[in-house]
Write a protein that binds this DNA or RNA. Structure first.
Length: 570
RNA sequence: GCGCCUAUAGCUCAGUGGAUAGAGCACCGGCCUCCGGAGCCGGGUGCGCAGGUUCAAUUCCUGCUAGGCGCGCCA
């Protein structure tokens, strides 16, 4: 058993089902009342207010109409049957409340077993095999290799990496990829920009391209090439075309390495950096277009080759090959997505910035035309990020060169804080990133608050060691002694991790784990204030140390999923 | 004009087809002879507007209003 809550949920549901069948059989309820159970799970929820118990069911409200009795009366019959059932496990009491809810309270044995389970699972607690090893590919960041990573890239990196960790925890075989657009126009513009700066540094008159990249880093790259002996030698012998070609490769490698370093600092890992250029070299794009033409999904117009994407749900048709003979970005991108699916990934997730939402329709249309099922590709659109300093939005303008890159951000706030802040909101919501708060080493900072809960657990163990209490003493503790409301509140919150991980993974919602971590830390701090762990009562001390050990595990596991360190001291 | 996203407490945001809609910040008041006070406890007139589906809508659907973003043979 890896999830006690799931086990109990199943047990209660089956008890309710049996109770209703028994009532229908005995004639106390109309025979057709059991129809409400058909094809649907017995409704069971975790009440918001812990005073209502661990589980609640509105089944009596749902069944009242068929039962032709008031909900509370139906509830009372179900409770009578259920409490008489020998199948019932852990349920200590079932009460009728409000309009007809049945609230289930679990026995202390449940708390004891939960603590024991968490301690035996250790780092695996919270994980499950729901995904059955299905292969899921998450593609994120995929910034053009023409400049530094920006703040939305940083959000995408934190969200994507956490999502991969979540999917992994939920039993999927999850992989991450960064698609490198190292072919195409943007790269040429970069090459021309660096070349222009190079000429400028040499004091030659050369016009900077209209749509060129004006960042200071472009000049830096040119300057570095001039100082690099072998590069300088090659440049001095080159004509303009050769120099541009040289700078294309030089700048590309330089910027790609730079982006890789930024992400490494951020502890965001990619299983693969997939090169568009290599994809083109395999002939995959040509082959794909050939098949599309053969299938009749294309037509020629105004000298360009169009994909009939509107036949597959897109707003309008899209150009694959421009009238100048070059591919648009759509063609290689489609080939890339087809490549991912051909490698055995059955689910693709793309995390995109808000300026790319139009992209989804054409990709979905493409995959549909290839015959892949609906739902093979899921696009997660991130909304914008506003950096806040002193309560004011930080103005960013590319033109004026006022621009905060991901590197700048990570110099200002710790990596753990940045990751947390970027995932703490729903991906579909605009994000206000409070730089002052993220940097603060104080109770107001949610990251510190959670990490402090972990450090506090460790501190208690250090204290226990000083008092001469060894781990084997709490390994065999009598967990039945954990009976204070604060003990149970903590256990209840810890028991929720597996459900939380699974729903966060299925909803593609890293923010849920951020919220959970915060709530867990809060319950832990309350417990700590309410219940003394190390006391004169040796048996209770042992039980509480086991509880703290479990708490430490759960906090660490939640932080691990977010890619945030779990410090022993701060 | 079309498309996507958003609208919940003074502020930043959670949340769910169900019970009395939550958290943090800010503000006010308490709690250390004690495991880290980097903490805890208490204090709340809020789901943009109008319809619809439902036993039940803040949640789902439609329309409206307001804000953000996008709408290239750029990526």
């Amino acid at each position: 058993m890896h999830n006690i809550m799931e086990h109990i949920r199943g047990n209660i549901a089956s008890c309710i089902r049996q109770a209703m069948h028994a009532l229908a059989a005995s004639g106390e309820l109309p025979a057709d009342v059991v129809d409400v159970l058909d094809g649907a799970a017995v409704p069971l929820e975790v009440p918001k207010d812990p005073k209502r118990g661990e589980f609640a069911s509105p089944i009596a409200l749902v069944a009242a109409k068929r039962a032709r009795k008031p909900p509370r009366e139906v509830a009372s019959l179900i409770v009578r049957e259920l409490m008489a059932s020998g199948e019932r496990k852990y349920v200590e009491s079932a009460e009728i409340a409000g309009p007809g809810f049945i609230n289930f309270r679990l026995s202390q044995q449940w708390a004891a077993d939960t603590v024991a389970l968490i301690r035996s699972k250790g780092p695996d607690y919270g994980r499950c095999d729901f995904g059955c090893g299905e292969r899921v590919m998450v593609e994120f960041v995929s910034a053009n290799p023409v400049g530094p990573l920006n703040v939305v890239n940083a959000r995408a990196a934190a969200v994507g990496d956490t999502l991969v960790r979540l999917l992994d925890a939920a039993g999927y075989d999850a992989a991450s990829e960064f698609y490198v657009n190292d072919a195409g126009r943007q790269v040429e513009v970069l090459a021309e920009s660096v070349y222009a700066r190079y000429m400028e540094l040499r004091g030659e008159d050369y016009a900077f391209p209209e749509d060129g990249y004006r960042g200071e880093y472009v000049r830096d790259i040119a300057a570095q090439a001039m100082q690099d002996g072998s590069a300088a030698a090659r440049l001095s012998a080159a004509n303009a075309d050769e120099a541009r070609a040289f700078f294309r490769e030089y700048a590309l490698r330089h910027i790609l390495d730079w982006q890789k370093r930024s992400l490494a600092k951020y502890e965001v890992r990619f299983d693969r950096w997939f090169s568009e250029r290599e994809l083109r070299e395999t002939g995959a794009v040509e082959a794909m277009i050939g098949e599309m033409e053969a299938a009749g999904h294309t037509y020629k117009e105004d000298g360009a080759l169009w994909f009939r994407s509107s036949d597959f749900g897109d707003d309008k048709d899209r150009v694959l090959i421009k009238s100048d003979g070059l591919y648009t970005y759509v063609a290689p991108d489609l080939a890339y997505h087809r490549d991912k699916l051909s490698r055995g990934f059955t689910k693709l997730i793309d995390i995109l910035g808000p300026d790319h939402h139009g992209y989804e329709g054409r990709m979905q249309a493409g995959l549909k035309s290839f015959g892949y099922p609906d739902g093979a590709l899921q696009v997660l659109l991130l909304q914008l990020v506003t950096l806040m300093r002193d309560g004011q939005p930080v103005k960013m303008s590319k033109r004026a060169g006022e621009f905060i890159s991901m590197d700048d951000l990570l110099e200002e706030v710790p990596k753990d804080a940045a990751r947390y802040f970027f995932i703490m909101r729903n991906t579909s919501s605009h994000l206000d990133f409070d730089l002052d708060l993220a940097r603060a080493q104080s109770m107001d900072n949610p990251v510190w608050y959670i990490q402090y809960a972990h450090a506090r657990c460790c501190s208690i163990f250090r204290q226990a060691e000083v008092a001469g209490i060894s781990p084997d003493m709490w390994d065999c503790a009598d967990l039945a002694l954990l009976s204070e409301p604060s003990d149970i509140d903590l256990v209840r919150k810890m028991a929720g991790l597996p459900d939380e991980v699974l729903s966060a993974a299925l909803e593609r919602a890293p923010s849920r784990i951020a919220k959970y971590g915060m709530d867990l830390a809060s319950v832990f701090h309350s417990f700590y204030n309410e219940c003394r762990v190390i006391s004169d009562d040796a048996a209770l001390t042992a039980a509480r140390l086991a509880l703290v050990d479990a708490a430490k595990t759960v906090i660490a596991n939640a932080l691990q999923i977010m890619g945030i360190a779990a410090p022993e001291r701060m």
